[in-house]
Design a protein around this nucleic acid. Structure first.
Length: 664
RNA sequence: GCCCGAAUAGCUCAGUUGGCCAGAGCGCUGCUCUUGUAAAGCAGAUGUCGUCGGUUCGAAUCCGACUUCGGGCUCCA
């Protein structure tokens, strides 16, 4: 038998007997690699380890420490889940079970419309452990489509996938389940075979560091008109430690949950008497919001915006003209029938700003006209979608509409993008990811020229800024292209916050125009933009980003002063008055409770600076400084402390107490 | 809207198979205590057991509807 030559990733060649498999290759390279190997990548394609190799192939052995390795491990674990469920629920059928971020899921349909409950997870997981212990092989086979259909006679969802795949219109997730003129299967036992393109780990014994997380309903093919399947989510990792770390990360994230923090820090609440998705802001939350609003207004003023105020209601006619009623009536609160017409709560501010533009004739000399409003809107979000401040029914946008001649668009967008990023930086975000969404394929309004020009203006601004961005081809709104900006928070999660949207629709629908230098009347382009987006949601993101340890300028209480004993209260108050006069938010906590208790309370409230004042301080005009996340300093001269705070409390900055706030 | 689950004191949560006046810790109120960096002591008050209806001799507990919340799906101008 002649040898074959295999190229390895490091560029070296290795000779193996003909008929050798990827597993053989791994063994030839090393014992350790053979033990860790899960799958192989042959000439760029992931395959099973027992696949025979051919002369001249480029082969990489994949272990669990790579993304592909981990993915395979998760995907294989989903097959184990399927086997467990199908054996525990005779008559159950299964749909798809891909790997996802951190884990996997599998969708099932149980006989007699039965559903899973949380309690079932334990039984299923126990059965999965048995399957892992049995060390079943994953054996690949390929069948002609008709044979495949026969094999999956009892499983309508699988047959539907076969039909779609073999008819050639497969896409995304379904393409992974099979391919081409044959359909591949993986058999674990005589009783369990799943249709799957693979590859898989060699045996179930390679799995084991997994945990079933939750049950959920999920529509077949993600379509709400299709039947609802029963989904089970799990997480899976290469090692026990990785699994433990992941579970710990989830716990840490739960500690940062803005709903929990908002309650603990007495910032706001969602009283059920008020109705779903509607918040009341308590004094501590309201002061933070006021600081955010004041800062936003100051920045807008400096950037050449003009303020506007508009009402919460408008006649149906306005939303008919704007197009909101025909496109988004489902998401609007229902109409109020009055004797002089029908009124709706506003879902957006734009039509109102358009009316301001339209209130008189406009000249090119006053463009760009930038109208800004902290505008409160109401949208009837479906009941199951509400999620604290992140998804509410009433919220306030830092909303602006800019009216600009088409030829001025590029400059305007460029400076606007700078403004957006700078504003986000001020709140402590420094990692951004942008997305440029272009003209939708189906229906859209505006001429080719307008689309091209404005898309170019957006792309040009992104390039000029050097901002990293992806292109979402056809992802724009029907009325124009847009840029969305995501930020990454302290624990690596992405949040979409800002949006810049070009709009040809409103100017057209409302017949907007301006008088150009040549005396012609032309339509302006309208730009919608929000920086924080929803102020409420932004507040929630900030809380989670800082784990409640807001930077000094935003903290509801910036300094809390604790007199050691009753004798020191007068001094404590004099310190308070001095700091308050300097514009700081300061509270005194009297000596009724022991000092240790008061320190603990202040720390739990995440106050940036706790000051302890006693005999020596009264005598010397000093304070004891206990900063959030730092070490205690005694005998700090009050003036020196005040000077430090004057620097740290500047709006739009983060100081040592916020930097220390990274940990939950 | 759909699937799974939850709702008991201001907060966090116990409450056995339906059975006396429904509990704990924290918080709150009062009194006592009062000197240096993460929980002082004693006493006390507090509940239409989410709402409405049903089953039952009897319901926090079982059933139904509704409201709100959590986890998903769908949706997000």
């Amino acid at each position: 038998m002649s040898d074959i030559s295999i190229a390895l990733p490091d560029g070296s060649q290795r000779q193996l007997p003909a008929g050798s498999t990827a597993a053989d290759l791994a063994s030839a390279i090393g014992k350790r690699l053979a033990k860790d190997a899960l799958v192989a990548v042959v000439d760029g394609k992931p395959v099973d380890l027992n696949r025979p190799l051919a002369d001249g192939q480029q082969v990489q052995i994949v272990t669990p420490d790579s993304e592909l390795g981990l993915d395979t491990l998760r995907h294989s674990t989903s097959h184990v889940l399927a086997q467990a469920v199908l054996s525990l629920w005779p008559g159950a059928t299964f749909a798809i079970g891909p790997s996802i971020a951190d884990g996997f899921y599998y969708d099932f349909s149980l006989p007699d419309s039965a559903t899973f409950s949380e309690d079932d997870l334990e039984r299923i997981e126990a059965r999965m452990r048995e399957i892992v212990k049995a060390d079943q092989p994953f054996i690949r086979s390929e069948l002609a489509p008709d044979d495949a259909r026969a094999l999956m006679a009892e499983h309508p969802y699988k047959r539907e996938i076969i039909d779609r795949v073999t008819s050639g219109d497969a896409s995304g997730m379904e393409a992974e389940a099979a391919g081409g003129n044959s359909v591949s299967f993986y058999r674990n036992t005589d009783a369990f075979v799943d249709m799957c393109v693979g590859p898989h780990v060699p045996t179930t014994g390679r799995l084991g560091h997994f945990k079933l997380m939750k049950v959920a309903g999920a529509y077949w093919r993600g379509d709400e008109h299709q039947p609802m399947l029963q989904r089970i989510y799990g997480t899976a990792w290469a090692t026990k430690d990785q699994l433990a770390e992941h579970l710990k990360r989830l716990e840490e994230a739960a500690k940062r949950d803005h709903r929990k923090l908002a309650n603990e820090l007495d910032l706001l609440s969602f009283p059920s008497e008020l109705g779903g998705g509607l918040a009341v802001w308590h004094p501590r939350g309201a002061i933070v919001r006021k600081v955010m609003e004041d800062y936003s207004r100051a920045r807008h003023m400096a950037a050449g915006y003009q303020f506007a105020y508009t009402p919460h209601l408008a006649r149906a006619q306005l939303f008919e003209t704007s197009g909101h009623l025909s496109f988004y009536a489902d998401g609007m609160y229902p109409p109020m029938e009055m004797d002089n017409g029908v009124y709706y709560p506003k879902p957006m501010n734009c039509p109102m700003h358009v009316l301001i533009y339209k209130s008189r004739q406009r000249s090119y000399r006053e463009l760009p006209l930038r109208l800004f409003e902290l505008g409160t809107v109401y949208r009837y979000e479906r009941a199951g979608t509400l999620h604290g401040l992140m998804r509410a029914r009433g919220f306030t946008q830092d909303d602006s509409h800019i009216f600009v001649p088409l030829e001025g668009l590029a400059d305007e967008i460029r400076s606007l993008l700078d403004f957006v990023i700078d504003m986000l930086r001020s709140f402590g975000f420094d990692e951004f990811q942008a997305k440029l969404s272009t003209r939708p394929a189906e229906k859209s309004i505006g001429t080719d020229e307008m689309w091209e020009l404005s898309t170019k203006a957006l792309a040009g601004a992104l390039d000029a800024h050097g901002l990293d961005y992806t292109i979402d081809e056809g992802g724009g709104a029907f009325y124009g292209p847009k840029i969305d900006v995501d930020v990454r928070d302290a624990i690596g999660r992405a949040w979409q916050l800002s949006t810049i949207q070009v709009d040809f629709n409103h100017p057209e629908r409302f017949g907007l125009e301006y008088v150009a230098p040549d005396g012609e009347r032309r339509p302006p382009v309208m730009v919608h933009r929000a920086l924080m987006g929803s102020l409420d949601r932004f507040f929630g993101v900030l809380l989670e980003h800082y784990a409640g340890n807001l930077p000094l300028w935003l903290a509801p209480v910036q300094v809390e002063i604790l007199p050691v004993a009753a004798d020191h209260e007068d001094y404590a108050w004099s310190v308070r008055d001095r700091l308050a006069a300097a514009g700081l938010r300061v509270e005194v906590s009297g000596a009724g409770d022991p000092l240790g208790r008061r320190i603990r309370n202040a720390k739990m409230q995440k106050v940036p600076y706790v000051l302890v004042v006693g005999d020596t301080d009264v005598a010397a005009g000093t304070v004891g400084v206990n900063p959030r996340g730092g070490d205690v300093e005694r005998d700090v001269v009050l003036g020196a402390f005040e000077a430090r705070l004057a620097v740290e409390a500047v709006p739009g900055t983060t100081g040592p107490t916020a930097a220390a706030a990274g940990q939950a």
